[in-house]
Amino acid sequence: MDNGASSYRRFLNGEEGAFEEIMLKYRDGLTFFIGGFVRDIMTAEDIAIDVFTYLLLNPKKYDFSVSLKTYLYMLGRSRALDHLRSRKRRMTVDISELENELADRESLEDSVLADERSRAVNRALGALPEKMRTVLYLIYFEELSYEETARVMKLNRKQVDNLLYRAKARFRLIIGEEGVQWI
């Protein structure tokens, strides 16, 4: 599996439709991943659009040294953190917007998380600190390698190992309380 690299090569060769393939393939996962940071699906989608726009505008910046998926998640995480830094702490949310947000979240969960068990696990992930949640999500949900996860999180391999060990320990406690068996 080339994680979108072949589509991207076709896009670089002038096939614009290939870029749509990339978006189709990674849109939901990337939005969901970003949503884990910003906790707002609309904002996450907006940031995901920015990520794809950046890729369109700066095709030479991606050098194929990592998988395209890893590159997109690196951009997504970076922009999500930028957004969190710039966002005002106080937010007012309209009740109808909140209902839409919940509906959107469920719809996105349905798309990204295949079964009820995955959803329960994901909900439990929400109780973890950001870094622990991210490392578990990238490795177990997005199936990125340790090296790719390290690139996305701007950590080294050893730090990912340590973080994952601690995250799993913390997660077992939480998931045990939710009654979901963790392998």
Partner: peptide, 9 residues
């Protein structure tokens, strides 16, 4: 509401 894929693209 989330955008459709067409709108997103």
């Amino acid at each position: 509401m989330r955008r459709s894929f067409e709108d997103f693209s």
